[in-house]
Design a protein around this nucleic acid. Sequence first.
RNA 1: GCGCCCGUAGCUCAAUGGAUAGAGUACUUGGCUUCGAACCAAGGGGUUGGGGGUUCGAUUCCCUCCGGGCGCACCA
Length: 569
Amino acid sequence: MMRDKIEIIVREALQALGVEVGVVNIEHPADSSHGDYATNAALMYGKAKGVSPRMLAGELVEKILETSSDDIAKIEIAGPGFINFFLSDTTLESAILRRTALRKNEENEGRSFVKTGERVNVEFVSTNPTGELHIGHGRSAFFGDTLARVLALTGAEVTREFYINDSRESNQIRELGKTALGKGEQYKTPELVEKMAKLDFTGLSEEEAGVLLATAVQAGNRAFIEKELGVNFDVWYSEDAELRASGANTAMLALLKERNFTYEKDGALWLKTSEYGDDEDRVIVRSDGTVPYFLADIAYHQKKFDRGFQAVINVWGADHHGHIKRMQAVGRMLGWPARHCLSLNKDSQAMAGGQKAGTGADQPIVFIAQMVSLKEDGVSSKMSKRAGNVILLRDLVAEFGIDIVRWFFIEKALNTQMAFDMALAREKSEKNPVYYVQYAHARLSSVIEKAKARNAEILGSPGLPETGRTALPETKGFAELFKTPSARALAMKIAELPEVVADIAESYAVHSLTGYAVALATATNAFYRDVRIVTDDGVDTTALALALRAKETLAETLALLGISAPDRM
RNA sequence: GCGCCCGUAGCUCAAUGGAUAGAGUACUUGGCUUCGAACCAAGGGGUUGGGGGUUCGAUUCCCUCCGGGCGCACCA
């Protein structure tokens, strides 16, 4: 990645000047007249060095010029002390040519908190087997899906996991059983009644009936998640089988007792979480002898580490954030590995990166997806089954299609509250950024096809590659093409994808991928406007090469989002 | 009451402490006889909820107030 190269150059120059270097920021200036990359290093370290930022910038530039390679065509000092870098055309060209495809380990090494080959468990969705997925589950489903893809791309060995709360001893299964037997109303939605009608509960106990119904609900949810949402899990982890029946819960309880983390009070057994940072102690065995979900969660996380994961990521809904503190306390209690969890706010996201905060995170990684509320006639309201205003995810997919639904959810940062307005969604679905990005892709596909029809020998006998990611046609070099600003800008955008991916692996800002997709599409359209690929004389092979790279980069970006990249639309 | 999240253009949302706070949408205007107009170009639209503070510099960090959301079980 070019950005890494520039960071190293700046870092070395700072060190050569005797500055104690911490963070070095390299960014793309918003205004292209400020160069391809810029750093505020002189502003950050001027004070430490005891000179003005502009003075330090001057010294830095001098140092950089002593050693720097051909990569940089021009360096400028601007404003209060920014240093702007202009890449040489040949460097940009080789960045485009070299990058045949975004592949694991290829260009992101060393940047992600997830070190190459590190085993990461990403648990998300994990809805209870008591009902269908509603729109509130959409966020974590698509966030987790794309995050898993990004982490895998940066070299992590990712396991996607869905935890099924199906313990036959749990209250919810019992309540579900009551409903199945006509003795209760819990979870009784039209969809559940439909499922119940297909099952025979005669002669079953509440527990057995609950298990039967939960199994059916879970099977339906799984089919929906895989087929309709296109989200695939590597592991469907059954609490009942893996934690209850296997004795893991019991073993964990014994361990907690043995290590003296528990005490009895009011007939119940309590865990001393307050000694490890929680606000108060928590019940681990109820006075009636049953165990709460908390114990299973402890056993579950312990198992994750036992299974060999170095990093454990959970995506939870906002209604679970009260759980974080107690799980963190348990993590300290049991000595779970560092960096196993992270959190919901900016501070702890920085901690997750480890490098940034420098504190070394010792907390499990938990992402909190904020609530999705409903909005009708400009007024927000809570989704309520009683009020009959629950929107199921499947209704949304049926109406808008999975591409739009995915975009709609991924687009927003996870920590913002989403107000879901059906009327607005309908309006937006017609003029949607998804179509904008897909259109840019389809347009390029069309042009590339046209070029191929015009001159099948461009790439030799096999003709043009169907899918990109292969050799490009012979070109006479990009210098001439890059004289057109929009062509050069498109090349820069293409080269930026590895940076975006690396950033997301660090910041978990999955939503930034949609912003990149739109920017890439915009750059594509500007290039298309200014440069003709197929002309009366034939085909401009250099422009065609850039178009091919643009098309495959659009496709790669959409693939990360789980959105289709149609050749025609 | 305590803890966490949020408050940015009419609307939906962006912006690792940096340069003139950006996109989409809506609105106004211009562009199809050449590779796809689901596109492009231009314009108006902001006290970043209010007020303090930290510093070269704050939408971002700290304090406080206002407003909204979510938690605060021997539920999950």
